[in-house]
Design a protein around this nucleic acid. Structure first.
Length: 957
RNA sequence: GGGCUCAUAGCUCAGUUGGUUAGAGCGUUGCGUUGACAUCGCAAAGGCCAGAGGUUCAAAUCCUCUUGGGCCCACCA
């Protein structure tokens, strides 16, 4: 019969089978049930372009553990799955794929290209879903949502329209983050700042009034260097500005200095000649200028820098754009037209050098924004975009976190969140790409052309912030005719919305908002005059929202978490989730973030095929300390695999030894009069209690490690070893029967408790157990829908646990003595005498002498009261007991003496410390009584021990 | 510039309200082919818990500073 069960657990044979079984039996499906408490998690929707990486594996394992745990706890657990259309990322992928055929998206045209993307999505978009299934994710798959689905898109439009109507969305021209490669605007969050080693270029701008600047004299002292007072006396004919982006100087329309700056006071209002361009520009004063940076004089390029933009507005400067959207210089750049911005930089520097206008170049560290999708350096660029006013949305979102309605785990993220929210900037939501939700914004050609006659807006002309929005039509559907002029010549804005503008609606858009909103359902039931009973039936949105917990990575707190909170409060008038669990980032052994581009990633699928899904899940979880980053290397997964194998083999052993006739065990609560059985039950329920506590606090590693050490080191190493003789002898006795029941129950219940962590192996064994015990042979049921074990507090008994610990200590000490004597080998049979003066301990040891003999592998064991020393024995002291191994051969007395002296020495040190502690009046007075009592007991025990040690030492001969 | 985080055994890390002898996995050493498991068992070695102050009867744990890593935010031309 043993041969039926292989010695090693084979994940490959089980995983697919059980996943299919679960799905087919609809075990993942959740429906509103008024008798049950809902437990909801919405998945952070992976990009359709995504392939499973370790970050996903960790993120989704955590969610699956929570979902499976709460499902077993009897809650209506819904894990809402879906994918994100990931505008820029997906468009880039598809662009790359058509580029193989030599095509650009412009070649196809918008409609055709979008079609291509959809095709691509149909073909590859579900890759990540299949991979999540391999991971064991128990999502409610029929609910699968995609952010570009029709229904979902309606939510997005609805949100836009509502915000617009409320005045929270506006269009305007500002400096935004522009990715020249993707050719779209990005939000501030999408421009990832990275430190670069750049240069600070010091450029001389000649003063107009001083006459012709003479480049022939390079030694001419700079005006803006008053450090040398002598220099200041020289005729001043130029000002030096410092810049990191010299190419933007072509668009300079002023130079600014701080009004308090004595060096420049006299130049304020004077005119400079902009080199290379020969434009006249003014020197203006503004307190924004940092006197300490560079020369204290700053070139102002209102069209290419956000600060300069502000200055431009404030001082009414000209706005000159010198670049095209692809970051090549435009016609305003004169001879540099057509050059890439970095090429232009080189050439400009060369030209300035030739004219003697370059004072110096200093190495300079700067941080520049990079496109978070293609890593191209962002160009601050003036353009007309759509924005969401964030301050009004942020206010309530700050409140709910401050009031603790939403809690972050670990707590420290609260501060990060609040800090960002309190300094929130308006959100640029329009993107100049094709893949995404088109803005529900329409224009009437007729009206626009009228407008054009009055205001001419060209790229190079200064752009006024367009608060005039009369010619804009925002509508849920395309209007048939212009509400102003009645023209039917209406077209839609070309731009699409930021992907995150759809993701921020995820916790309720997935439930069909606005169609399924509570208001709508109420209306419906009134109209149809439904019975009151039916009226009570909640919509999914009512039932599952707010969700319970959001599990995510720190990178997207700003992108997503914060915005969901704002959207939830704005559109649902309720928080989207109660808890936010932020897990760490997965890094490689060197601490680098795992990413495909770095080539340092460990493929979870590879781990699954090599070690099994359960091993992957367990290993990941057991090294995920709360919120701490996860440093991974491949060998980490061996632990998980070994543990799975341990569970497998322990189960195998139990199955082999189950007396089938006795099953199913009649008594759910076994009468465990024997200490060993009482002990393991107590330990089991204690452990379950800990696991619950840890899971409720999102301490997954602690939960996993508790289960690991309970099962391996208590259940297998001690319990199974202890009961082996009883099982193997198969003597029909009360003890035998009880042991059968206890062993079976603990295993079966342990499988349930570890099931959320290791779903596949637990199902495999559980089904095997059920079959063997004929309990559930014909039922289509699963471990995943069994109730979580109810903790039986009356079974938890600390006295029993302490007693057993004492027995174990005796066994360990004897094993240790064997080692010291080098008689570990079982072939060398030995007998041991234990002398105990304490009556209770003596009784305890006597009633467990069989266990001690067995596990210490003793031939004989004598338990006596009074110790009398004699020669030819090896003695050890443990808690006042003398453990004696009589020996026939010669004993190294010196060695023994040394050992004992060491022990005495250590005990003496301890005693000294304890005594000092107990003499301290403050300690007696202020420490809790329990602690003081404990210390006193310890001191007594130590004193007793030392006496006995001395006795043994003196007796050595 | 602001904020966060880390420094504990050879390595990678746990250690949540301060209180027995600071734990685990891997690695190392010795022993073991005992009736599930060598993806195993038994045992051992190995820690002034980064450094310096402070609070406290009591500090790996709380506070301050120092040193050295990592991360995030910011309008550092």
């Amino acid at each position: 019969m043993i041969d039926e069960i292989p010695k090693q657990y084979s994940p490959k044979d089980t995983e697919e089978k059980w996943y299919k079984f679960w799905e087919e039996n609809n075990f993942f499906i959740a429906k509103p049930d008024p008798n049950k408490k809902p437990f909801t998690i919405v998945i952070p929707p992976p990009n359709v372009t995504g392939i499973l990486h370790m970050g996903h594996a960790l993120n989704n394992t955590i969610q699956d553990i929570l979902i499976r745990y709460h499902r077993m706890k009897g809650e209506e657990a819904l894990w809402m799955p879906g994918t994100d259309h990931a505008g820029i990322a997906t468009q880039n992928v598809v662009e790359k794929s058509i580029a193989k055929e030599g095509l650009k998206r412009q070649d196809l045209g918008r409609e055709k290209f979008i079609e291509c993307v959809w095709q691509w999505k149909e073909q590859y978009g579900s890759t990540i879903i299949h991979q999540l299934k391999k991971l064991g994710a128990s999502c409610d798959w029929p609910r699968l949502r995609f952010t570009m689905d029709d229904e979902y898109s309606k939510s997005v439009i609805e949100a836009f329209v509502l915000l617009y109507e409320k005045g929270l969305i506006y269009q305007g021209s500002y400096i935004i983050n522009w990715c020249p490669r993707c050719q779209t605007a990005l939000s501030d969050e999408e421009a990832a700042h990275q430190v670069l080693q750049g240069s600070l270029y010091y450029i001389k701008y000649p003063l107009k009034d001083v006459g012709q600047f003479k480049p022939a004299n390079p030694r001419m002292p700079p005006l803006a260097a008053p450090r040398h007072t002598a220099a200041a006396r020289e005729p001043a004919n130029y000002i030096v500005v410092a810049t990191t982006r010299p190419e933007t100087m072509l668009g300079d329309t002023a130079v600014a200095v701080n009004p308090k700056d004595k060096r420049y006071k006299k130049f304020i209002g004077k005119t400079l000649i902009l080199p290379l361009v020969n434009r006249e520009i003014k020197i203006i004063a503004d307190s924004m200028v940092d006197m300490k940076f560079g020369t204290g004089a700053v070139k102002v390029t209102p069209s290419h820098d956000p600060n300069d933009y502000c200055l431009g507005k404030k001082h009414n400067l000209e706005f000159i754009n010198v670049m095209r959207p692809d970051a090549r210089m435009n016609e305003a750049a004169g001879k540099y037209q057509g050059m890439d911005r970095f090429k232009a930089r080189e050439v400009i520097i060369e030209d300035l050098k030739k004219q003697g206008l370059l004072q110096k170049i200093e190495p300079h560290e700067l941080s520049a924004g990079h496109c978070y999708r293609c890593h191209t350096i962002i160009e601050p660029y003036l353009s007309k975009q759509w924005f969401v006013k964030m301050k009004p949305l942020a206010k309530p979102a700050i409140e709910v976190v401050k009031k603790g309605k939403i809690k972050f785990y670990p707590r420290r993220w609260t501060k990060v969140y609040l800090n960002w929210m309190e300094n929130i900037q308006d959100w640029c939501i329009s993107r100049q790409i094709w893949w995404g939700h088109r803005l529900p914004v329409y224009y009437c050609r007729n009206c626009i052309s009228h407008m054009a006659n009055s205001i001419s807006q060209k790229d190079n002309k200064p752009l006024a912030i367009s608060h005039k929005q009369e010619n804009i039509i925002v509508s849920r559907t395309k209007p048939e005719k212009c509400p102003k002029c009645g023209s039917t010549d209406i077209y839609q804005d070309e731009d699409v919305l930021d992907t995150w503008f759809s993701s921020w609606l995820w916790p309720f858009a997935t439930f069909g908002w606005p169609n399924q909103s509570s208001a709508a359902s109420c209306q419906l039931s009134d109209k149809n005059n439904l019975k009151t009973e039916n009226r009570k039936l909640k919509t999914d949105l009512d039932y599952f929202y707010p969700t319970s917990v959001l599990v995510t990575a720190p990178e997207i707190i700003f992108f997503w978490v914060a915005r969901m909170i704002m959207a939830g409060l704005e559109f649902q008038k309720n928080i989207p989730f109660k808890d936010v669990y932020i897990h760490g980032t997965v890094r490689d052994a060197q601490g680098k973030k795992m990413s495909k581009s770095l080539g340092n990633s460990i493929d979870p699928l590879e781990i699954i095929s090599e070690y099994g899904t359960d091993a992957l899940r367990f290993s990941l979880i057991s090294i995920t300390a709360q919120g701490q980053d996860v440093f991974l290397s491949k060998d980490r997964f061996e632990q998980g695999r070994n543990f799975a194998n341990k569970i497998w083999n322990a189960s195998r052993f139990i199955l082999m030894n189950l007396d089938i006739k006795e099953f199913p065990p009649k008594a759910d609560q076994p009468t465990a009069e024997n200490l060993v059985n009482r002990w393991i039950l107590s330990r089991f329920y204690s452990s379950v209690g800990e696991v619950e506590k840890y899971l409720n606090n999102y301490q997954f590693n602690e939960a996993a490690n508790t289960l690991y050490s309970f099962f391996w080191h208590e259940f297998c190493d001690w319990y199974l070893e202890l009961v082996k003789p009883v099982l193997v002898n198969r003597v029909q006795s009360t003890e035998y029967r009880n042991t059968q029941v206890v062993m079976y129950k603990v295993l079966e219940k342990f499988l349930r408790v570890i099931h959320p962590f290791m779903p596949f192996i637990t199902e495999e064994i559980w089904q095997g157990l059920s079959l063997r015990t004929c309990e559930l042979a014909n039922l289509r049921t699963s471990i995943m829908i069994q109730p979580w074990p109810h903790i039986q507090n009356e079974i938890i008994d600390k006295k029993t646990e302490a007693d057993m610990a004492e027995v174990f200590e005796v066994i360990t000490t004897i094993r240790n003595m064997r080692r010291e004597l080098d008689i570990l080998s079982q072939t060398q049979n030995i007998a041991v005498k234990i002398f105990v003066s304490n009556k209770n301990t003596k009784l305890l040891l006597e009633s467990n002498s069989a266990c001690i003999k067995n596990l210490a592998r003793l031939e004989g064991l004598i338990i006596a009261e009074e110790y009398r020393q004699s020669s030819g024995e090896f003695v050890n002291i443990l808690k006042g007991m003398h453990l004696v191994i009589p020996l026939k051969g010669v004993i190294d007395i010196e060695k023994q003496r040394e050992k004992i002296e060491d022990k005495i020495h250590k005990a003496q040190t301890d005693i000294k410390a304890k005594k000092a502690m107990l003499v301290n009046k403050d300690f007696i007075k202020r420490a809790p009584e329990k602690i003081v009592e404990g210390e006193k007991e310890k001191l007594n025990a130590l004193s007793g021990e030392i006496e006995k040690l001395k006795g043994v030492k003196n007796g050595l001969k």
